[in-house]
C-alpha cells in the first residue's frame, strides 16, 4: 500500500485529482482494492462514499480483481456493423464467461468497450495493450493462445 501513498503524494492530495489517483491504482493493481480507497479517502479528506461514487460511475474502474489479461472487445458502431457481437459471443463461449466476467483460472477478463478508435480495422479486440483487428471468429483461438 506504499504505492497508494506515493500516488496520493504525486497529485499533492488534490481533491480534483481523485480520478487520476484511482486511474493510477487501477492501472497498477488491475482493480481498486478497498484498502487503497480507504487510504485515499483519509489522505485527501473526502468521504469514502465519494470514491465509491466515482468508482461506480466511470467505466475505467473495477472494484473486483480481474484476470491477468483484459480482453476489450470494441463495440463501437463500425465494429458492430462488421460483426463485433459475433466476436463477443465466440469469446463468451470459448472462455465460458459473461461480459464483465473473469475466467476461473484468472487468465482472462472479458469486457466490452465503447470504441477504441481503430474503426478502419473493425472488428477489433484489445488484449492488454495489443490491438488485433479485422477479426473473424476463427482468428480468435490463435490470438488467445499468445496470452498465458
Amino acid at each position: 500500500m506504499q504505492l497508494v501513498y506515493q500516488i496520493v503524494e504525486k497529485y499533492d492530495r488534490r481533491e480534483s485529482s481523485l480520478i487520476a489517483m484511482m486511474q493510477d491504482i487501477q492501472k497498477s493493481e488491475g482493480y481498486l482494492p478497498q484498502k487503497a480507497l480507504e487510504i485515499i479517502a483519509k489522505e485527501v479528506q473526502v468521504p469514502l462514499s465519494r470514491l465509491y461514487a466515482l468508482a461506480t460511475f466511470y467505466k475505467a474502474f473495477s472494484l473486483t480483481p480481474r484476470g491477468r489479461h483484459i480482453i476489450h472487445v470494441c463495440t463501437g458502431t463500425a465494429c458492430h456493423v462488421r460483426g463485433a457481437d459475433k466476436i463477443m459471443d465466440k469469446l463468451k463461449r470459448d472462455l465460458n464467461v459473461e461480459e464483465g466476467g473473469t475466467t476461473e483460472d484468472g487468465r482472462f477478463t472479458l469486457e466490452g468497450v465503447r470504441c477504441v478508435g481503430c474503426c478502419g480495422l473493425g472488428p477489433v479486440i484489445v488484449v492488454g495493450e495489443n490491438f488485433h483487428g479485422k477479426l473473424t471468429q476463427k482468428d480468435l483461438g490463435n490470438i488467445l493462445d499468445q496470452y498465458k
Binding site: 463495440t75 463501437g76 458492430h80 465503447r114 470504441c115 478508435g117 481503430c118 474503426c119
Partner: peptide, 11 residues
C-alpha cells in the same frame, strides 16, 4: 473525450 463510437478524428 471523443465518445462517439465510430469517430476517431480527434485521436
Amino acid at each position: 473525450d471523443e465518445g462517439d463510437p465510430g469517430a476517431y478524428m480527434d485521436r
